[in-house]
Design a protein around this nucleic acid. Sequence first.
DNA 1: CCGTTCTGAGAGGGA
DNA 2: CTCAGAACGG
Length: 743
Amino acid sequence: MSESDPILDPLNEKQREAVTHGEGSLLVFAGAGSGKTRTITHRIAHLIRDRGVAPYEILGVTFTNKAAAEMQERARKLVGETNIQPELRTFHSFGVRLLSEEVNALKRERNFSIYDDRDQLAVLKECLKQLKLDPKQIKPRTLAGRINYAKDNLMYPRQYAEEQGKDADEQFYTIYKTYEKILLSNNAFDFGDLILRPVKLLQENETVRNRWQLRFQHLLVDEFQDTNPAQFELAHLLAEKHGNIVAVGDDDQSIYSWRGADISNILNFEKYFPNTKTVRLERNYRSTQPILEAAHAVIKNNSHRKDKKLWTDKSEGRKPEVYAARNDYKEAEYVLETIRLLEKMQGVSPGDCAVFFRVNAQTRVFEEVFTRENMPYVIVSSVGFYERMEIKDLLAYLKILVNPADDHSLSRIINQPSRGIGEKTEAALMEYAAAQEASGLEALPLLLESGQLTGRAHNALSKFYQLYNQLQEYNDQPPLKVIEKVLEKSRYIEKVVEKKDDHTAESRLENIEELKRVAADFGEENPDPPLADFVEEITLLTDMDTTETEATAVNLMTLHAAKGLEFEVVFMAGMEEGLLPHRNSEFDPERKEEERRLCYVGFTRAKKRLYCSWSRKRRLYGTERQNHPSPFLREAGLLDEPSALHGVDSGRRGRAFNQSRKRSKRKMKKKSKKITTASGKSNAGSRAALNYEVGEIIKHPKFGRGKIVAIQGSESSPTASIKFDAVGEKRLALAYAHLEKIS
DNA sequence: CCGTTCTGAGAGGGA
DNA sequence: CTCAGAACGG
């Protein structure tokens, strides 16, 4: 072996043990900051270089595209440039790949659409409509939860019905079946399908199973603690023949049970894969000793965990601080002031700091305070980029170009931007399509020819059909080009700009630009990029992939979003009983353990300093409530000292912040209300309604007698607020309200 | 058909 | 308190 080996030398003893493991199953408990990614990538490099494994025989599976890309990148550096790289994918993208290659064995066309959870909700609403059920009594959200649960646990409708037994679930069974039928007719899969279907296929079809079991001789699964039963089974099936599976994860960081993740997948791994070798990476390269101590003091209270303890040789460092704020504003001000202080005294940049929350709602106060005090911040992963209305609209356009059977995407944009195709017209089209057993787009020209339409509907639909045909011509162009054509031909941008309600139009345009940029990047990376691939990639992108932390601004994020990241300075905000642990987990010991893991994840993100804060009072859900400190603070050994030192709002702290706190400066929603009185009207001639004055008594055909209390609106369409004797105050457009003067 | 106002439910995390 | 969907006016 050469003197300096880039693959094996940088590893510690335990890491090397994992990396050089031979055949058979291996379980790696990789604690926070223990060099997990390094271990995985070096193992891949080692397999290729030293064990004669071909890159294409290696499959690595992760949860986010970002993690997959990072591994790809790092592995490439170690192995050197080769034409063939190992397959490093997310679970979902692997599922898509398998499904597209095996599409012949499925009831789908190759160009299937992928529905995310919002699409799923829309489909479920459609189900309820078809079955004539009331969405108020049966909530689509609940249904989505049950369907996802069923799919995560590998159950089709029938199996779910059997599993649950009882006739009580008859209704759900029917809905689930209908839902599946709609997906089928739209040539679409939902997220759950992307795992469930490959598993079923591998289980039921021997040829397919053999093919995939032979193809990948080595399987590595990252974040194994986050796998759900279906994902576990997928990994199990792929590794069944050769048994070469490496599962990497940390049970202490399992925080996705609500999404179906099953911590017992990692805890019981050895049961499913006999003769598993287990390696624990406990050496931490990230945090100081006092931080690790606090973290361990918390996590050791969990009963369902593998015993392990992180250690470091960085023995120096400060004990984490606790601050009890009088209210949530004081809490934000404390964080802000601490950051300012660190900046001044220690040269810490705001970008090195992160504030973690349990719930998104907490960010609001911080935004308000940070904005007021000019502290730069970014919210990491708030509302998903790809969930934005305009992005979903544009994607829907692309989806119908790729997959004309996609009625759901069609219905999303058939009148977006509005082009005179209303509910009725759309319903007529879909009915006609159903009668023809065709998709909406297939039925569209037939309906136009059938002569069944009224002039207006015919006109609107035929215009849309023209649009669709025009766009279809660009189908094989690069995605960026297609998007530009969609925007141009549909006049989407104009419509966005037209309704210039405050700043939303601006941010929409930005989002559209962002999507175009993504499309441009995609085009550069893929020389001849099929539109379908672009659509697939975007659909499978996650928030974690699109949002970046910021080097120059304080990073605000939820604890869930924090996993996998690290910061010099970490603030844990809202360390209160009821918030962390969240009150929904109060009565469930398992879920309470997960809250503890969340706390642990937060603590272990900190490299140098950790600050915890809580608020005695907090306005949440509209009401102000009193709080107690989180029990985790006590467990961490951070509450022991006399409260005089830590617990009291010293008053000195908030010096600069004592000015009156204005909550109202959010969104200036007021559209400058011009009070225009009737006397000011000169062009009133054409409009009979305009010569009214405030104070006049009038009569309305429906509401009866009323008094005009204000007149507002633009000159061309004035409106009046009228206080009616019978129905109270209403606002009516003077041009249309059939008012009669009676005074 | 479209836009605004009103109402009622929901507020945990996110691929 | 806030947002989504319903209801309603024009």
